[in-house]
């Protein structure tokens, strides 16, 4: 039983207005299902963070959502479009239904407040009538949930290590039991050992509490291990979307293959690796046709002319995967 939880339908996000607008996210259609971990991979500038901020309406100006819909399937109230919520509805929606763990949690905690008061703040904003004791008990419970002793409530952020601060952020994101947790590069500032601990905890928490995760990162090898499905972005568009195992064993888009080939392997035979030649496209001057074609080893005539459409490929093994590449015409 896979029900959709958030459906993003042809979302467009621009920076700036009019002719000078930079199209950071173009025509993205993506579905996050209940209880799944959806990985969103891409290089810097591919629009993955912009997509996350656009769908939660957190975009700072000059970012503008230029079109599309974000349908949230509320189990109690039925589906509604997040993009058309009023300010007060949005206030209710945020943190209670979706929460975000930002990139560089080191800096997202306020350095002059104790972590206890920062945790209770979010709870108080959504439930002003609850008692102080109840809020504090809840905050303590959240800290325990992410593996931090409750007596750390009185600590200031600088008294915690990077890994602990990141855990506090995850705990805070879970404060109101949201259905969706968006994680924007939550572990890039951490060491591999700490990264594994935190992701391991996250996977366990998801099993216990049953929320969905949209996991944004540039580290594809991490996603293959931790997520159920992976969407790969390039130049503001989704170029391939498939179950994690399929992306790893049998990726269709040359960019996905290139990304996978950019990580030196720790085990197995040593191979000569090349990465992907060239550099990511400039969003102000996008190549015509498929944005990847100047770097693509397999590009041919249609690539430079027409933008490939994301669709179910005419290839074996895939009704639950989509790809946007002229090599794999849409069925």
């Amino acid at each position: 039983m896979i029900e959709p939880l958030i459906e993003i339908k042809s979302l467009n996000v621009d920076y700036g207005l009019g002719d000078e607008a930079v199209h950071a996210v173009r025509d993205v259609t993506l579905t996050l299902h209940r209880g799944e971990v959806l990985g969103l991979a891409g290089e810097s500038g591919s629009g993955k963070s912009t997509l996350a901020y656009g769908m939660t309406r957190l975009l700072p100006p000059p970012g503008v959502v230029a079109g599309g819909e974000v349908i949230y399937h509320d189990p109690e109230r039925g589906p509604y479009d997040v993009l058309s919520l009023t300010n007060s509805e949005l206030r209710e929606f945020r943190w209670a239904e979706t929460s975000i763990v930002f990139q560089g949690a080191m800096n997202s905690l306020n350095p002059v407040h104790r972590i206890g008061s920062q945790l209770t703040d979010a709870i108080k904003a959504h439930d002003p009538r609850g008692s102080r004791q109840a809020r504090e008990a809840r905050a303590r419970e959240l800290l325990n949930l992410v593996g931090i002793p409750g007596d750390r409530m009185e600590s200031y952020p600088h008294q915690l290590s990077g890994g602990m601060r990141q855990r506090v952020m995850i705990g805070m994101a879970l404060a109101l039991e949201p259905k969706v947790v968006i994680m924007d590069e939550p572990t890039t500032a951490l060491d591999v050992v700490m990264q594994r601990q935190i992701l391991g905890e996250l996977v366990q928490l998801r099993e216990r509490l049953g929320f969905s995760v949209l996991f944004i990162t540039h580290d594809l090898s991490l996603l293959v291990e931790f997520s159920d499905r992976i969407a790969i972005m390039y130049g503001g568009r989704i170029v391939e979307q498939a179950p994690a195992k399929q992306i790893y064993t049998d990726s269709l888009h040359p960019y996905s293959a290139g990304l996978l080939g950019s990580f030196p392997a720790l085990r197995g035979p040593k191979r000569e690796l090349t990465g992907i030649p060239g550099s990511p496209p400039d969003l102000r001057a996008m190549p015509t046709g498929c944005a990847f074609h100047p770097r693509c080893p397999k590009s041919f005539e249609p690539c430079a002319q027409e933008i490939p459409v994301l669709g179910v490929p005419d290839a074996p093994g895939g009704s639950d995967r989509t790809v946007a590449c002229w090599l794999h015409p849409v069925r």
Binding site: H218, L259, S262, G275
Partner: peptide, 11 residues
């Protein structure tokens, strides 16, 4: 650096 260009610099 971006993942796809790291190897270029290492090579």
């Amino acid at each position: 650096l971006d993942v796809s260009i790291r190897l270029g610099v290492l090579n």
